[in-house]
């Protein structure tokens, strides 16, 4: 069985079976935001062998992105972020399809942007837009893996249509404490990985761990604590 997998996936076999790998290859994931979280999420999906990624971001690479954003380099300042993503991802795994949307997500364009998607990953840097993304996913009927980061800290969970977990956890406002604390490289990488883990479980049909609950991540104290949403 293992030998039926492309060589690059064979060592994952006990974790991601042939059947799971086929499910991933037939899946489409939309990632909204191509910065700290979005870059790492996209890279992991490419290495996992998802069928297609839809990347949504209207922004360009800036100097200030270099502290954490995987696709930003000293050589691509000014490039649209989704194009910087393409340049890296296409040499990581050429069998994954990529749809680039160099535009900003809003509730009106969501249905068109996410056409064909099986789930959406929130990698936005605005609390208001994260809440708006949940409303859009609710309307379209897509599961959403959400995450927010600031300094040493992060928060992550899964919201299915009707759950409205994001609007309960992220109260209206544009920014949180990241305004003061920034986002050093390790925080988006860890929260992105946790997001991808939950997303993979959804795609292969395993039980999701963070629905109706959320994980508080404290990297300063190395505390990972789960709270129920009831």
């Amino acid at each position: 069985m293992r030998e039926q997998l492309p060589l690059r996936y064979q060592r994952n076999y006990k974790t991601i079976s042939l059947e799971d790998q086929a499910k991933l290859a037939n899946s489409t994931v939309a990632i909204v935001g191509c910065g700290g979280l979005g870059g790492c999420i996209a890279e992991e999906f490419f290495r996992l062998g998802v069928g297609k990624l839809i990347l949504v971001d209207g922004d360009h690479i800036e100097q200030s992105n270099l502290n954490r954003q995987l696709f930003s380099t000293e050589k691509n300042i000014g490039q649209p972020k989704v194009e910087a993503a393409r340049d890296r991802l296409q040499v990581v795994n050429s069998s994954v399809q990529l749809k680039l949307i160099a535009d900003w997500f809003n509730e009106d364009n969501a249905a068109v942007f996410f056409e064909g998607a099986d789930l959406v990953c929130d990698a936005l840097d605005s609390i208001n837009r994260r809440i708006s993304l949940e409303r859009a996913c609710n309307r379209i009927g897509l599961p959403l893996v959400y995450a927010g980061i600031a300094g040493w800290y992060g928060r992550i969970g899964v919201s299915y249509p009707g759950d409205f977990s994001v609007s309960r956890l992220f109260h209206e406002g544009e920014k949180g404490i990241e305004k003061t604390w920034g986002n050093p490289a390790f925080t988006p990488a860890i929260l992105a990985s946790l997001s991808v883990v939950e997303a993979v479980k959804i795609l292969v049909g395993r039980d999701v761990s963070l629905r109706h609950s959320w994980l508080h991540v404290d990297l300063l104290e190395m505390e990972f604590e789960r709270f129920q949403l009831n």
Partner: peptide, 8 residues
């Protein structure tokens, strides 16, 4: 009590 964490 938790602070807002909004970045990405």
């Amino acid at each position: 009590i938790f602070p807002p964490v909004g970045g990405g």
